[in-house]
Design a protein around this nucleic acid. Structure first.
Lengths: 342, 342
DNA sequence: TTGTACGCGTTATCAC
DNA sequence: GTGATAACGCGTACAA
């Protein structure tokens, strides 16, 4: 069946004019007579002519595609970022090619190489856990040195010179911890991941800073470092039983949820007996019972910002090598898991 | 800085041979002498030559890109489908271009047109709510008539001839309802959406069929049709207060969660006093407290299946117009919100 | 006003 | 063994 896509050539032959005449006529060029233009445009419309994107890409050396490489898509935060990127990019006429690194260094490299050979005009990415662990950024370096614009978001590295979008994780944790302190909580447990994650480290910093500013000692026993992506409820339970905190701060949604499960099972009332705040304001926090007060990371805004920065770079003629780092401010979304301050 | 990507032409000039010699040498052609090949290959490797995807696409009329159009990405089910598509497609050397219709007919059309002009080799998509409501499938028709392969999944239409992947929603609802009946529940409430969604309709069918097969009357008062995507907790509460069911079946995750909230607030114990089963086995159901028994839709498998069907069509030479509909069987994941049958 | 020629980067065919 | 040429579809500088 394959009703061959119609090209300029087809139109030209059919109407017995040259290809360039057709091309110009369809661009409404002044060079072409009204008659010819009308004839050609009518024909093109009839046969639903649309220029071939690939040919245009080859000619312009612009694909109007953005490559996005993220560690995981089954993750509310990344999902909102993609939505933001899509929003902005589509409005500007760009398509979004999504690749998943699956938290693996190797996959990240493969995906970058796949896309870097002309498929995209620029990258937006967040480092995989594997890459953060390995601290090998050569694939990023190669790409940026080739002159392909890149924007890193959330999980970034200082070793690469490029635009970046971050949220102020230190500040987010600071505000959250402060909120708990203001409620009168003094024994605030921190549920976090291993240290190689830049974001976890920063959240830890903000937590400690808030305690110090408040005049409290930082007690390392109150901090539980869990392996990434691995919900070990028993470990959380053991930890919480042992230290019996009056508040929990979690660097993600899921640890917070499970922290809440554990204390609820012990018969504690959230938030009367214990307050809980989580990071990453996602569906779990929002729809939990009680709903969990969270530090919102504004993923959608982050995506839009990243897309904006990238497209500006892509479309800018001048080759000045100046890179910006945009820092978004997190917001504390107060819900039912903390005490209402009137 | 823009260290221009190196091309065959550059290599040819540098090594003082013809472009075609370079091309052949890099393909390890037998035609070229060992010496020349080695020289050229070494040079190419040194300068990290990679063929330009766009040029190859133009030549081959194959982009190695798959276009995926889904209604929403902030939705666990679609997210797992994408993961499945990515898995399979990447392994086959394809990139995935994701576009969001945002449940809007217009956006769906625009995205399709953007991609249909050469950017992709085929489509995988799930209809937007807008399209299902409007019942206008001309954009799909045009694309398939152009000979672009397409696979529809989950939200499909019988008006378009193409490959399809579905789960057996009737069966899923049947099994879930049966499970509740087997527990001894007799007053099973159904929380569903408006009728124009093919999936909701089918789940409703399965629910009714199970009741009938069990010899029970279907009582329309036990069915609450809520507007799509709009969580009206008050309405759910009013409904549940009025009918006082001993079980709830929800056609999605979110209604199930809120149903549970409402009955828990009334002081009922889940699952002792009331059982709950939801559709779409996502994070909310899994991490709820208690965790919610769910009908798993196997999104990842669905994505893989769709990608497999599409790529087969894309790569098949013969133009036979034969379309398959693959029906996946749902699975009931038993959790804490239903009674344990020993 | 229209058409010719060339280039984007690659590959395949055919001539030398 | 190597190279010239055409072609994929488009746009544009230049010629007619």
């Amino acid at each position: 069946m394959l009703k061959q896509k119609i090209t300029l050539k087809h139109i030209a032959k059919e109407l017995d004019v040259s290809i360039s005449t057709v091309s110009k006529a369809l661009k409404n060029s002044e060079e072409i007579s009204r008659d010819t233009k009308e004839k050609i445009q009518a024909f093109a419309k009839l046969y639903n002519y649309k220029p071939n994107n690939i040919a245009i890409s080859l000619k312009n050396k612009r694909t109007k595609n953005i490559g996005v490489i993220i560690p995981d898509i089954v993750h509310h935060f990344f999902t909102t970022v993609i939505r933001g990127i899509e929003n902005y990019a589509n409005a500007k006429g760009y398509n979004v090619i999504v690749c998943l690194s699956d938290e693996s260094f190797d996959k990240e490299v493969i995906n970058m190489e796949m896309l870097a050979n002309g498929s995209i005009d620029g990258f937006i990415m967040s480092l995989s856990a594997g890459t953060e662990k390995k601290k090998d950024f050569n694939h990023l370096k190669e790409v940026t040195e080739q002159g392909i614009p890149m924007v890193l978001f959330d999980r970034v590295t200082s070793e690469i010179n490029c635009d970046k979008v971050l949220i102020d994780d230190i500040q987010g944790a600071y505000v959250a911890t402060k909120k708990l302190l203001d409620e009168g909580r003094r024994k605030i447990a921190l549920l976090t991941t291993e240290d190689f994650f830049s974001v976890s480290m920063n959240r830890n910093k903000g937590y400690r800073k808030a305690l110090k500013d408040f005049g409290l000692e930082v007690n390392p026993d109150l901090v539980l470092k869990l392996p990434f992506m691995d919900i070990d409820e028993a470990k959380i339970e053991e930890f919480l039983n042992q230290i019996e905190p009056d508040a929990i701060l979690s660097v993600n949604e899921i640890f917070g949820i499970y922290g809440m499960r554990v204390v609820q099972r012990k018969g504690l009332n959230v938030p009367k007996d214990i307050s809980i705040i989580g990071f990453t304001d996602g569906l779990l926090a929002k729809h939990a019972n009680p709903s969990i007060t969270s530090v919102a990371q504004h993923g959608e805004l982050m995506g839009e910002t990243a897309a904006k920065m990238l497209i500006e770079k892509v479309e800018s003629e001048n080759e000045e090598e100046t890179y910006r780092t945009e820092i978004l401010q997190p917001t504390l979304i107060e819900r039912e898991s903390t005490l209402n301050q009137v």
